[in-house]
Amino acid sequence: MRITLFDYGAGNLHSLAKALRGDGRDVRAETDARAALVTDLLVLPGVGAFEPAARALDGGREAMRDAIQSGLPCLGICLGMQLLFDSSDEGEGAGLGVFSGRVTKLRTKRTPQIGWNSIDDTTDPLFAGAHLETAYYANSFACRAADESAVTAWSSHEGDRFPAAVRSGNTLGVQFHPEKSSAPGVAFIRDYLNIISNS
C-alpha cells in the first residue's frame, strides 16, 4: 500500500511516518497537492497553522476534494482534520470542504489545549478496538461540524465539547494526535490501515 503524507512544510512527520510504516506499506512525503493524490491513502498531518497549510492546497484543492469524495481514503490529523472542513478562524484560505462546518477557537480559558484528554461518546468501533480512551491533544481550534452525525467521538475541555473524530466511509479526521498517544494511538492507526487495505 502506498501512503502519502501531504507535507505543508511545518512540523515533525517522523513519528507519524513511523506509525504508518510496516507490513509492506510504503510511506512518502509530497509537497505538491496534485502529486499527493497518486496514492492508496492520503494523510494530512497535524502540525502547523491553517493559513500556510491552506495556501499549500492552492492549485490542487478541487482535485484533492474530488479524489476524497470519489473514495480516496484520507486520514486528517489535528490541523489535517481541520483542513477537511470549509474554513477556519485561525487564518485566511479555504479548506477542502469534505465535511461542512467552520473551525473556531476553543471556548476555554486555557488555550491551547495541550495534554491528554478522554475520548467520549464514541460510535466508531476503531476506538474500542485500539483501547484508545485517552489521547494527546495540542490544539487551540476545533471543527464545528454542521452535520453532527459525521462526528464519531467527542472530547471536552473546560466545558467546550468538540469533535474528537469525524468519519465518512474511509475518510477519517481526528483532532488528537494518535501518533503521540502511545501504544493505543499507534494501534488505532494500524487498525484504520487494516480497514483501508481490506476495502
Binding site: 502547523g48 497553522a49 495540542a138
Partner: peptide, 8 residues
C-alpha cells in the same frame, strides 16, 4: 508561533 503554531 506564526510559522509552526503556538502549540509548538
Amino acid at each position: 508561533a506564526r510559522r509552526f503554531g503556538t502549540q509548538c
